[in-house]
């Protein structure tokens, strides 16, 4: 059992959860994730480690509320316990002195990319951060990300920020101006990562994405998370989750993520009926 220290809504539909996990804190590195099971009858779902506090021995993750598991998590309170909070899983992101790195994040990926940007900055890279939000009221962690970025911009589909378009277009514009970008890191929903990887393909800039296939154990035992990268089957939970976005078979990933579409709706309705009759 792991204790919830804090659960709060950051912006509509996106929540923060801080969990007591002293063992995970000692080991975790940017890009790794945990598997959480919200209650005894729940599903095991992966969440990226967005931050950690060595003193408190706590791990923070940010999640978008989509289906049953994330609804359940959004209904937890400080002091509650979850039966499974295991990690740190997956390979850490590559953090080296690359030169200039552009970090492109959206949705929960704004948080997921934060520790990577921070570590890249600490390594002496020039960090350009580009975030995507649908509207200004969906932006969170702006200060944290500004603090670790040399350049910071936001792409949105309202009139609040400079780039008024979907993130790959902003990314392309930046690539036109900045000729010396050595690497792009992109985290968010699958579509965001896919479009970012496509935007950099012609420029031949290595683009790392953090893949999010359906997982079960997260330790390489089941193969639920298999993805095709460079023509080879990989298990995202142990071989990834970071892969070269130009080598990923995106069609397959989109397809496999929809494996349980009908079941998920049924599960959600069942949960709602039970809790909010």
């Amino acid at each position: 059992m792991a204790k919830i220290l804090k659960r709060e809504r950051l912006v509509p539909n996106i929540h923060l959860i801080e969990v007591e996990a002293p063992e995970i804190v000692r080991k975790c590195r940017p890009g790794q994730f945990v598997i959480v099971m919200p209650d005894d009858k729940g599903e095991r779902i992966p969440l990226t480690i967005a931050d950690w506090d060595i003193q408190k021995g706590s791990i923070t993750s940010i999640f978008l509320v989509v289906g049953t598991s994330t609804h359940k998590l959004a209904n937890l309170h400080a002091g509650d316990e979850v039966p499974v909070f295991v990690g740190p899983l997956g390979k850490p992101s590559e953090i080296e002195k690359f030169g200039t790195v552009l970090c492109a994040g959206g949705c929960f990926g704004i948080a997921a990319i934060y520790p990577i940007a921070r570590a890249l900055k600490e390594k002496g890279n020039k960090v350009i951060t580009l975030l995507d939000v649908k509207a200004n009221y969906l932006l969170y962690w702006e200060d944290k990300l500004r603090a670790v970025s040399d350049h910071f911009s936001i792409s949105s589909r309202d009139n609040y920020y400079d780039c008024k378009e979907y993130i790959p277009y902003s990314l392309k514009n930046i690539l036109k101006k900045e000729k010396n970008i050595d690497r792009v890191v992109s985290i968010g929903c699958t579509y965001l990562m896919y479009t970012c990887a496509e935007a950099t393909r012609l420029h031949e800039i290595k683009t790392m994405v953090s893949l999010n296939p359906i997982m079960v154990d997260g330790t390489g035992m089941c193969g639920a998370c298999r993805v095709t990268v460079g023509g080879k089957t990989k298990f995202a939970c142990v071989d990834g989750p970071d892969f070269d976005g130009h080598l990923v078979d995106w069609d397959e990933l989109f397809m496999r993520r929809k494996s349980y579409f009908d079941d998920e709706i049924q599960s959600m309705c069942y949960w709602e009926r039970k809790n909010f009759p």
Binding site: K41, E43, T68, V216, M221, C222, G223, Y260, S267
Partner: peptide, 26 residues
């Protein structure tokens, strides 16, 4: 499926009792 995934969904995650348990199985 791999047998591991199929059996894990059913035995460990109790997918035979979906949707009372959240994990689905084909």
């Amino acid at each position: 499926y791999s047998a591991n995934e199929y059996l894990t969904r059913v035995n460990l995650m109790r997918a035979f009792a979906f949707p009372e348990y959240d994990t689905p199985v084909y």
